[in-house]
Amino acid sequence: MDTTNSTVFIPGATSGIGLALALRLQQAGSTVVIGGRRQALLDSIASEHGLDTVQVDVADADSIRQAAETVLAAHPSLDTLVTMSGIMRNEDLRDPAHITDAVEIVETNLVGTIRLIDAFLPHLLGRPSATVMTVSSGLAFVPLTATPTYSATKAGVHAYTQALRQQLVGSSVEVLELAPPAVATDLMGGQDFGGMPLDAFIDEVVGLVESGAAPEILVQNVLPLRWAERDGTHQHILEAMAGTGH
């Protein structure tokens, strides 16, 4: 992925990691379109930063199709999709009422990722060089007890990304996976998880992308989670995160 000369669509980029990445790619020289559900927020970001925007709800198939049509009509040179959208909620699995949250999380994080890729992949396969970057999480590898469905969807995104990458071997589309650690954002209403500062995270991510790191974009802070199974530390980290609430 060329950070200086790409045309990028990032749904789920009205705040947090998504917006920070969008602004950094714009600063590097790429054309960036961001998507989100709230039109007023999109308008504000467009006015402040000069980013192109499109309204999209990744939990709604029709919304994704309409957004794809809008983005591709305005930016036929689009060559990069970053599936940033995601929601994270605490769940008490002893309470059957959690299923409402669980279904919404699966619909947004996993099914939304699949639908976004479906909507843009035919176009990307027609480009001389293109990139799909999915966004999983360190919690794909060691789940956070308090957010079981979120963790499960990110494990699903990881597996789906691996299969997509293998299916596209020999094509013009590179498939990357960004697996963030805990980062200080508003994902859980701004709760303090002791996450790494957003600017430091984005600095490291962009540096990795520019260095050609592939197929997984892994900052140093996420490595203990990514390799926990291999290193024999999985149960220890699982229990430690459950005990501290991180």
Score class of each variant (00 low, 15 high):
Ala213Gln: 12
Val8Trp: 04
Ala152Lys: 13
Ala74Thr: 05
Ala22His: 11
Ala59Met: 02
Gly232Ala: 02
Glu174Thr: 14
Leu238Gly: 00
Met84Gln: 15
Gly16Ile: 04
Val111Leu: 15
Glu91Gln: 12
Ala119Met: 01
Gly86Leu: 08
Ile17Asn: 02
Gly126Lys: 07
Ala59Tyr: 08
Ala13Gly: 03
Ala179Tyr: 01
Ser63Glu: 09
Val71His: 10
Gly112Ile: 00
Ile217His: 11
Glu177Pro: 08
Leu208Cys: 05
Gly12Pro: 10
Glu204Asp: 15
Leu42Ala: 08
Leu110Glu: 00
Thr70Arg: 09
Glu69Trp: 00
Val169Pro: 04
Ala13Glu: 05
Gly170Pro: 12
Ala184Asp: 10
Ala152Tyr: 08
Met88Thr: 05
Asp101Tyr: 15
Ala179Lys: 08
Ser47Glu: 10
Gln162Thr: 05
Asp95Cys: 08
Asp43Leu: 03
Gly18Arg: 10
Asp95Ala: 07
Asp118Gly: 08
Pro96Trp: 09
Thr108Asp: 13
Val106Ala: 13
Ser30Asp: 07
Met133Val: 02
Pro215Val: 08
Ala40Trp: 04
Phe141Trp: 11
Leu178Ala: 12
Gln66Thr: 09
Val209Ile: 15
Arg127Ser: 03
Ala61Ile: 14
Thr14Asn: 05
Phe193Lys: 02
Ala119Asp: 00
Thr134Met: 06
Gln27Leu: 09
Ala46Cys: 06
Gln26Arg: 14
Gly189Leu: 09
Pro180Leu: 11
Gln27Lys: 12
Ala140Thr: 10
Phe193Gln: 06
Thr31Glu: 15
Gln26His: 07
Gly245Gln: 07
Val132Arg: 06
Thr147Lys: 08
Leu110Trp: 00
Arg127Asn: 00
Pro11Val: 08
Asp199Ala: 13
Asp92Thr: 06
Asn90Gln: 14
Val173Asn: 00
Arg38Phe: 09
Val222His: 02
Leu168Ala: 09
Leu124Arg: 10
Arg230Trp: 07
Thr100Ile: 09
Leu72Phe: 03
Ile10Phe: 04
Thr108Val: 14
Glu104Gly: 14
Gly50Ser: 07
Asp60Asn: 12
Gln162Arg: 12
Leu78Glu: 01
Ala182Tyr: 06
Val71Trp: 01
Val219Lys: 00
Lys154Gln: 11
Gln39Ile: 04
Pro148Ala: 01
Gly18Glu: 07
Leu223Ile: 02
Thr233Ser: 10
Leu178Lys: 01
Glu91Ser: 06
Val169Gly: 02
Val32Tyr: 03
Gln27Ala: 09
Ser47Lys: 11
Ala182Leu: 13
Asp186Tyr: 04
Val111Gln: 14
Leu93Cys: 01
Ile114Val: 14
